Amino acid sequence: MTEDLSLVCETYTGMTLDFRLITAEDISQVMLLERSAHSHPWRQSSFEDCLNGRQKCWLAEYKGILVGYVVVTHGGGDAELLNISVAPNYQRKGIGQTLLSHAVNCVKEKADMLFLEVRRSNRKAIALYEREDFFEVGQRKNYYPTANGHEDAILMARQLL
């Protein structure tokens, strides 16, 4: 993955985003965004693992405000998108697409395929992934917790070569 400490990207809506790797000082803000965006958020320790681990968590800031992040990892010729989130007040502005493009760029020289899981009910995310050349390769039964039990995940992949 790229070791650049920061990067500036523009969304298709013209927002200028500053990307940088997560630091220990960011964890509390990341957890606030994670809890606001997901019914069953990641644990804080999962983000802390990004500080020194094989996973990389890139934050996207707009005018100094954390608006999203993406977590990717790679190994053995494959890569996986572990988490991608956009703050609810900033959704539908191209941030998710920009984060996803950044994730692809981070791993494309180190992996042949990029995999991800997505809730079957998350139609907006599935549509985004399909627009970005991901395709369904399988399902994981009862993968995600819900308020009433579990929900299937769709396993998707994108060729990087």
Rank of each mutant, 00 (worst) to 15 (best):
K56R: 10
Y129W: 05
E130V: 15
G76F: 05
S121I: 01
K108G: 05
D26Y: 03
N89H: 11
L66C: 04
N148S: 15
Y69E: 10
V137N: 08
S28V: 14
C106Q: 12
L99C: 04
R123L: 15
A60Q: 05
P88G: 03
V137K: 06
M15Q: 15
C57A: 06
V86M: 01
F135K: 08
S46T: 09
T146W: 12
N122R: 12
N89G: 12
S101W: 08
T23N: 13
E130A: 13
L81A: 02
S46R: 01
K108A: 07
S85H: 04
E109D: 13
H150M: 12
V71R: 00
C106I: 08
F134W: 04
L59H: 03
V104H: 11
Q55S: 09
V86N: 00
S45H: 05
S46H: 03
R54H: 12
H102E: 06
A127C: 11
L114Q: 03
C106H: 04
P41F: 01
A125L: 03
E61F: 09
A37G: 08
N52F: 07
I65V: 12
K141H: 07
A24F: 06
K93V: 12
T16Y: 13
E136S: 15
Q97F: 09
G94R: 05
S46L: 10
R92Q: 13
L66W: 09
V72Q: 13
S39I: 07
L116P: 02
V67Q: 00
W42H: 01
Y90A: 03
A24D: 03
D152S: 06
E48M: 00
M31R: 03
F115A: 10
H74K: 08
E109L: 13
S121G: 08
F134N: 02
Y143N: 07
Q97H: 14
E132L: 14
K63V: 02
D18S: 15
S101K: 04
T146K: 12
D26N: 07
K124G: 13
E48W: 00
Y62R: 09
F134V: 09
S28W: 07
L81S: 00
N142A: 07
V67D: 00
E25H: 14
E132K: 12
G94L: 04
N83G: 04
D26F: 06
R20F: 14
V71E: 00
F134K: 04
R35H: 08
L66V: 00
K124I: 09
D133G: 09
N105T: 11
